[in-house]
């Protein structure tokens, strides 16, 4: 649990740490859209023939650039690559799973990379495209994970909450309790370590009473989990009740207006945090829309016909 990097704030004072969380959220969302953009342009050259491999080359360029950018962002924000790798390690299973699925059910209607091998006995063909497909999904997953890590690793949970509250502000017109939602999230975040500690303590106590959380049949395991969950609920309820009392005593009134200790400030660096992702997304959309680009790529030899 301890070396799980996803979602953990890593205190440091990098360029990215200093960005306004609102800009960071926007930037990361834009990059996420880039990750999800699919190159769907018809791959036909002037002569009316299907240009082979263009789809995969373009996909590789698009996902690859985000990948390189993500690594760059991780490096700038001083995140340890080891912890990133540790988080990615669990994806091996996903990769194998995806590969099997894509081999059994190819998604491409036109296979562009050719036949990998053929099993005559079963009248069954395996195309390289299946591998490329699995690779694409993996790259996407990794990109998403790394981008999320950049966001959560460089932004204090509380700043994230404030930024989300800022984005939710327009909803106040519809009587959406943005401030209360933000307060709730920030308290939930604050109590995660406390509850983790609670669950460790209860697990130890139940282990001493002969519960084996790792072995045993299903029934025993269910009892084991019950013996953990119920006490955890009980202590959480108690905590929330006491916390509510403490907050009330300190003058918290959810309906009243409050002032702010932490204010979000938009600075000169934040322009980069917006411009770079926006430019990348713009480029990708342009590629997808303007077919002449491919002709240029094809002509310059980037995309091999």
């Amino acid at each position: 649990m301890k070396n799980f990097a996803l979602g953990r704030y890593i205190p440091y004072n990098s360029f990215i740490h200093k960005l306004d969380p609102r800009v960071k959220i926007l930037g990361i969302v834009l990059l996420m859209v880039c990750v999800f953009l699919n190159f769907t342009h018809p791959v036909v050259n002037d002569a009316g023939e299907t240009v082979k491999a263009t789809y995969w080359t373009m996909t590789a360029i698009m996902q690859g650039s985000v990948f390189v950018l993500s690594i760059l962002l991780l490096w700038i924000s001083h995140m340890s690559f080891r912890s990133v790798l540790a988080s990615l390690r669990s994806l091996w299973f996903t990769l194998i799973f995806l590969l099997v699925i894509y081999i059994l059910v190819p998604t491409q209607t036109v296979m562009q990379l050719g036949l990998a091998w053929r099993v005559e006995a079963w009248n069954w063909s395996v195309y390289w495209d299946s591998f490329a497909d699995a690779g694409k999904i993996m790259l996407r997953l990794m990109n998403m994970l790394m981008l999320t890590m950049v966001l959560t690793g460089t932004t204090k949970p509380l700043d994230l909450t404030y930024a989300l509250e800022w984005y939710m502000a327009p909803l106040k017109v519809l009587h959406f309790p943005a401030a209360e939602v933000a307060m709730t999230i920030s308290i939930a975040l604050r109590f995660i370590p406390t509850l983790l500690e609670d669950s460790m303590r209860i697990m130890k106590a139940q282990s001493s009473r002969g519960v084996d959380f790792a072995h045993g049949n299903i029934l025993k395991r269910i009892t084991g989990v019950t013996s953990l969950i119920i006490p955890l609920f009980v202590s959480s309820f108690l905590r929330s009740e006491e916390l509510a009392n403490a907050m009330e005593c300190r003058g918290y009134d959810p309906r009243a207006k409050r002032t702010r200790y932490r204010l979000l400030k938009f600075g000169w660096r934040d322009i980069f945090g917006f411009i770079i992702p926006a430019a990348l997304l713009g480029l990708y959309i342009w590629w997808s829309v303007d077919s002449s680009v491919f002709t240029q790529f094809v002509l310059s030899g980037v995309v091999l016909p």
């Binding site: 106590a205 139940q206 002969g210 013996s227 202590s235």
Partner: peptide, 21 residues
């Protein structure tokens, strides 16, 4: 055989009332 050991050594943690379920 951890179970035999844990039967032999009882451990009462701080605030043990939080283990009731």
């Amino acid at each position: 055989k951890l179970k035999d050991l844990r039967k032999k050594v009882g451990l009462v943690f701080q605030f043990p009332e939080y283990q009731l379920f």
